[in-house]
Design a protein around this nucleic acid. Structure first.
Lengths: 241, 241
DNA sequence: CGAAAGGTTGACACTGGTCAAGCGGTGTGG
DNA sequence: CCACACCGCTTGACCAGTGTCAACCTTTCG
């Protein structure tokens, strides 16, 4: 990236931010132009390949990031290898937990990612100086908490059919918030990952997907490409009130 | 905090706060003496009977509280009546979600409670004026998020035996953080509530408790009174790493 | 073209749910 | 004071839903 050019426009909105999808969402949405410029001086964009681990369970964290494109999965593993995905993050979510140098989670790229990363120390210094950022972080944490608790209901009280429908509904509404009658998208997770998200086995996930397909609620092409032909029926299969 | 400084502060503290268990925990721990005095002017203590609902799913919230004594359960319900407890809160936790006038959860007294409550508007005004409170709220939200995600692993990937052991372990370590070899406590939840917390039925909870008793891991008196005779075996039954 | 990885399908087993009966403590009315 | 009913919990018998294991299919990629 061209550093000299970036320095020149320090007090304006950085060009790279002006075109950024995350500009008005996530953490950056809470920042003033000056703060954005300051953060941007230390930030770097990078791409990450699907499947790579960003941070391991128990690792030290030295960078925080905004997700510009792609899907990140957060997961926990037991000592015997059983795994549970405890969260999915989409652009423009913020990735990382300030003031906690050690991660309790494994953070992995579910799809190819584009990230905007900053060193831990820079961001923490900025947070202390700019309390408005703390509000942004609080809102993100509360959003994640809501999502986690919604998912606890799914994990604890829904059957396999409802779980799979809930997952498809989650992804569908995330890609097309309008909830139009028909929605098309590519699944960001493999069957094994969906199973780890739902607390099921891949066989059960597969069977329930087939069931939804045969019932005419969804169509499946190439395993990952899903067409929801009837959103209302998907929602009711998911047990949404 | 060093002793001399604490003595100085004690002189100015409201009398009721000076004796308060929540003084150094939860939200109040982040406040200066002046802020505490301000908050205290608008706060009122009250007791709540076990079983009463503090806030219903979808209700408007007009008060926030600190828990001084007792256990609060947060739960979600599906339209057909299936229920999942998505969080337990103990003294000195803060109860409520600033700037969100509507609750997505039902909040209920699991045991008899003693609360210290403040009107919504007062607290929100203070938060705007005192960014340090936002840090306190962020930390509480992150703590709840960690707990929720730990529990997602339990709900999604543990069997009935491990779930019940995990619950007992959670309560035991909460009452006696030392993890001494033997721990005694009263369960704050009925069998039905434990089932709703674990995503099981009361019959399964009962059977697994009996199993742990027959294996000599715990002893049970009067249904609620539990003696953990071997913490290590309880931990390993819970699948703790 | 062959091999590997990911996904589907079937047969069967087992865990946990369902339904029903019974136990034990507590509170109430005769 | 006893008889009774009620509530929370336990236990048993049975069954359904999901996991396990194995075979096979499909897609991808060297």
């Amino acid at each position: 990236m061209d550093t000299s050019r970036r320095d020149r426009i320090l007090d304006e909105l950085p060009a790279v931010c002006r075109a950024c999808e995350a500009r008005h969402g996530g953490l950056c949405g809470t920042l003033t132009t000056t703060q954005l410029a300051e953060l941007n001086r230390h930030s770097s964009r990078r791409t990450v390949e699907a499947g790579s681990e960003l941070v391991g369970q128990g690792d030290d964290v030295d960078h925080y990031s905004n997700i510009l494109r792609g899907v990140v999965k957060l997961s926990k593993m037991m000592s015997d290898g059983r795994q549970q995905i405890v969260g999915l993050q989409f652009a423009p979510d913020f990735l990382g937990r300030p003031f906690h140098p050690e991660s309790a989670l494994s953070v992995e790229a579910a799809t190819d990612l584009q990230l905007c990363s900053f060193p831990r120390t820079i961001l923490e210094r900025m947070i202390v100086a700019a309390p408005s950022m703390e509000r942004g972080l609080l809102n993100q944490a509360l959003k994640e908490l809501d999502e986690a608790r919604d998912w606890m209901l799914t994990l604890g009280r829904k059957n396999a059919n409802e779980k799979v429908a809930s997952f498809l509904f989650l992804i569908a509404t995330h890609y097309d918030a309008e909830e139009s009658r028909t929605t098309v998208f590519d699944l960001p997770l493999s069957r094994a990952e969906i199973a780890d998200f739902l607390g099921l086995t891949i066989e059960t996930v597969s069977r329930q997907m087939t069931k939804l397909r045969k019932e005419g609620v969804i169509a499946i092409e190439n395993n990952r490409h899903i067409t929801v032909t009837n959103m209302d029926r998907l929602a009711s299969a998911a047990g949404e009130d």
